[in-house]
Design a protein around this nucleic acid. Sequence first.
DNA 1: ATACATTTGTGCGTATGTATG
DNA 2: GCATACATACGCACAAATGTA
Lengths: 237, 237
Amino acid sequence: MVLKYQEIANSLADKVNNHEYTDKLPSEGELMTEYGASRNTIRNSLDILYNQGLIKRIQGSGYFVNTALHGEDYVMNLANKVGMNSLGVKYPITSQVLKLESIEADEKLAEILECEVGAPVYYIQRLRHSNNKLYALEKTYYLKEFIPYLSKEICEKSIFKFIIENYHISIKNADEYVTIYNLSDEEAKITDRESGSPTIRIEELNYLKNERPFNYSRTCYFQDDLTIYYHVNNYLN
Amino acid sequence: MVLKYQEIANSLADKVNNHEYTDKLPSEGELMTEYGASRNTIRNSLDILYNQGLIKRIQGSGYFVNTALHGEDYVMNLANKVGMNSLGVKYPITSQVLKLESIEADEKLAEILECEVGAPVYYIQRLRHSNNKLYALEKTYYLKEFIPYLSKEICEKSIFKFIIENYHISIKNADEYVTIYNLSDEEAKITDRESGSPTIRIEELNYLKNERPFNYSRTCYFQDDLTIYYHVNNYLN
DNA sequence: ATACATTTGTGCGTATGTATG
DNA sequence: GCATACATACGCACAAATGTA
């Protein structure tokens, strides 16, 4: 089913990311006629962009492109991974699949993925490159209950893209955990780095719309100057 | 001016953080009668908690307390700093003021704070402790245009609390930048750590409701196992 | 398996307040 | 003072998912 506010949000996000809007966005009223939607729906769409830190809003003035992300080279927006991944990336990302295994969830993984111990899971280990430079080591788990089939060819490209297109799954939300992580001997060897050297690690737990987790990943990023950006709204007092 | 949805959001957040709700929240309908508000207003309030990762929502079922943050000791929610700071902290935070200076913005700071070069600014350096343990070194700048007065006594407590209560300023949103930062010689000396040792550093730029930045800070956190949590909604496809 | 009530999700409308220019 | 634009708050209707009888 096509959701109006999602469609509009996608369209607006595209225009922001493709620099069709460089400073000011059309007013809510203009967007209402442009997209044939009510004010609530338009604001719903704009809320998504706002929460992701793509735009700023000023009462009485209008909506503006957020430039916090522009200019810096190694800034990654935690809210949509734009910057290093999909849209904002300058060079395409290639993935070297180190492992693609069918395993069963142990107790720890079962708790994380909220599944039975022994539930079938894909375990994938990938090295990710951009512009011929290693930038991340990713270990990821997919519940076969939701993702029944994966192949090496799929894992060399974008797994999420495959999932969304083929299984018509939509990711509703995610929990992200950021820490400093010191590489293990094995990880250091794989990535040609020093053992114990500190990296930024992002753990990610992705949920379907019924709040069921279907994917868990741990990714270490190797840019020394990598900056993770995140936009916060509505402080509570 | 008191905003209904903000009041309700504060009330609900309190109840979640004080474990008045342990699993399921009342339904939207129940909250409507409890707070005497329309469904839109209630949903507005719940949206805030949802975006901050305090609650989960399941269509047809209800709203639930997000347990992603519970259980772990050193998890800090980037969206509201609960965990290490205000509500969720087990021990009160004390601040040792190392510096409290009146300076003028140089070119770099002026660009960050969107002010004139030479604009008067407070520069504060603090060591922050919890449970008699050093946990952060903070360097922060406040534009005097908005925060005309600060004292050592105020800085030893919560600056934000003072600002909100006395200047009736409300923080609308913030940009956060997370990196690995290696301590300088001076910083290492102050904090009794090894020079060059890696820490998690959060840069924060806080905005007033007209999108004017009024505060910029850089804080290094010293828990080796500190984890930064962040909740992401509404992936765009 | 079905039907039904409950609960959240989407979308529309309207009115009024507040900030900007 | 005025027009414009975003902010808050109310209302309604129907869709979709869930839980239960």
